[in-house]
Design a protein around this nucleic acid. Structure first.
Lengths: 67, 67
DNA sequence: GAAAAATGTAAAACACGCTTGACATGAAAT
DNA sequence: ATTTCATGTCAAGCGTGTTTTACATTTTTC
C-alpha cells in the first residue's frame, strides 16, 4: 500500500523526527512506513491523518489488487 | 476502538461468515473485531469499509483519549 | 420439537507492526 | 573543516492481529 506521508511532510517542512514525536511512535516507524516496509496500524493511520488534518483515505492509497 | 461492523451487518442481514468470506478473513477475525478483542489492520479496515460502501472513518470510531 | 444456521469460546501457532539501540551517509549551517 | 541535522540500514525482540481447529450455545426455520 502506497501512502503520501513523505509528500505531506515535505510540503509542510516537517522532519521524520517531528512527525514521529507528534504521533507518538519512533522515527524508525515513520521511515518504515514511508519506505513501504509495512502498513500502519489503524490507530496510527488515524493519528497521522489527524495530524495532517485530513482523512485516512486521503493519505493511504489502497490499490485494487491488494489481497 | 469501537466499530459499527455488527450494526452494519445486521442492517443488511449479512452473517459473520458472509462478511468474513467477502473480505477474505476467517469468521473468528470478524467475531473478535465485533467484540472488541482487537483492532483491524488498515488493510482489513479498508476492505470492510469498501464492502459496506462507506469510509473507514464512518465504521471505526476513534476516541480522543486513545494513545 | 428437531434440524440447521448463526454466534460464541478457547488455545496454540504464525505474521506483522512497532520499539530499541547502534551505526552510516549526505546535506546544511557556522 | 567541523558540527549538526535529516535520512537511512540492520537486527533482535515484544505485543497484537489473524488463522486454525474443535466444540458449545443461541436463534431461526420447517
Amino acid at each position: 500500500m502506497e501512502n503520501r506521508i513523505a509528500a505531506l511532510r515535505k510540503e509542510r517542512r516537517i522532519s521524520q523526527a517531528e512527525l514521529a514525536e507528534a504521533v507518538a511512535v519512533t522515527r524508525q516507524t515513520i521511515i518504515s512506513l514511508e519506505n513501504g516496509r509495512y502498513n500502519a496500524s489503524l490507530l496510527l493511520a488515524h493519528k497521522i491523518a489527524k495530524y495532517f488534518e485530513t482523512t485516512i483515505e486521503d493519505i493511504f492509497l489502497f490499490e485494487e489488487e491488494e489481497s
